[in-house]
Amino acid sequence: MIEAATCLKCQYGLIKESRARLLNYCKTISMEDFLRENSAFPLGGSIRNLLVHVANTYQFWILKRALQMDLDFTQYTAIRSIQEAERLLGSIDTQIIRFIDQFESTLFDKLQLEVKGRVKYLSPLELFTHVTTHEFHHKGQILLLSRHLGYTPVDTDVVQ
């Protein structure tokens, strides 16, 4: 039988492949459009801001809460290019594998986490599922935003 941790690592590999297709597509977008804010979209509504928000969500739930790392969240303005966004997201990858390894025997056990002054009980599997589905939600927004900017989005689905 394949262990759950092996499945999560494989799944995260697929997520990274999909992310790579998105980031390669974003390299075709002008710097002006990459940074352009659109109030119709959340979080300042730029492709850059959405990518940083995705990274911050991984940082918040996996690095800071689950792995209890002391870190400052990345500010939107700290990222000035798609290459910097790519490095930011890439810097999280090793921590995700560390997270899976650390919790492989307790993926279904509840962790007690304090969030906004409230205690939440969430399993490592729930945290992993939350951050990865959150990434795909915002990936869709990035593709839609790029379409509003006049670009033709590429297929970034896991299954091509």
Rank of each mutant, 00 (worst) to 15 (best):
Ile29Val: 10
Asn38Arg: 04
Leu145Thr: 11
Asp101Trp: 08
Thr132Val: 04
Gln141Phe: 09
Thr106Gly: 14
Gln112Gly: 04
Ala66Cys: 14
Ile142Leu: 04
Glu17Thr: 11
Phe99Gln: 04
Leu23Ile: 06
Ser81Pro: 13
Val54Ile: 15
Thr57Tyr: 03
Glu86Ala: 04
Gly117Pro: 13
Thr132His: 02
Leu125Tyr: 15
Thr6Glu: 12
Thr106Asp: 15
Ile96Glu: 05
Gly45Gln: 06
Thr156Asp: 02
Thr106Asn: 15
Leu127Phe: 06
Thr132Gln: 03
Ala5Asp: 14
Ser146Gln: 01
Tyr76Ala: 13
Arg48Gln: 07
Leu51Glu: 00
Ile96Lys: 05
Ala5Leu: 07
Leu22Phe: 01
Ser30Glu: 01
Ile29Ala: 03
Glu135Asn: 09
Ile82Leu: 07
Thr106Tyr: 12
Gly44His: 03
Gln59Cys: 03
Ile100Tyr: 03
Gly150Lys: 09
Phe128Leu: 13
Ile82Arg: 03
Ser39Gln: 08
Lys64Tyr: 05
Thr74Leu: 09
Val154Ala: 10
Thr74Met: 13
Ile2Trp: 11
Phe136Val: 15
Tyr121Pro: 10
Thr132Lys: 01
Asn24Val: 00
Phe41Tyr: 15
Phe60Ala: 10
Leu143Cys: 09
Lys116Arg: 12
Gly13Asp: 14
Gln59Phe: 03
Asp109Ala: 08
Tyr12Arg: 10
Ile97Asn: 10
Thr133His: 05
Tyr25Lys: 00
Leu111Arg: 11
Leu35Ala: 14
His148Tyr: 15
Arg21Gly: 00
Ala78His: 13
Ala78Asn: 11
Asn24Lys: 00
Leu67Thr: 02
Ala20Thr: 09
Val52Gly: 04
Val115Thr: 08
Glu135Gln: 14
Phe60His: 12
Gln11Arg: 13
Gln141Thr: 08
Ile29Pro: 04
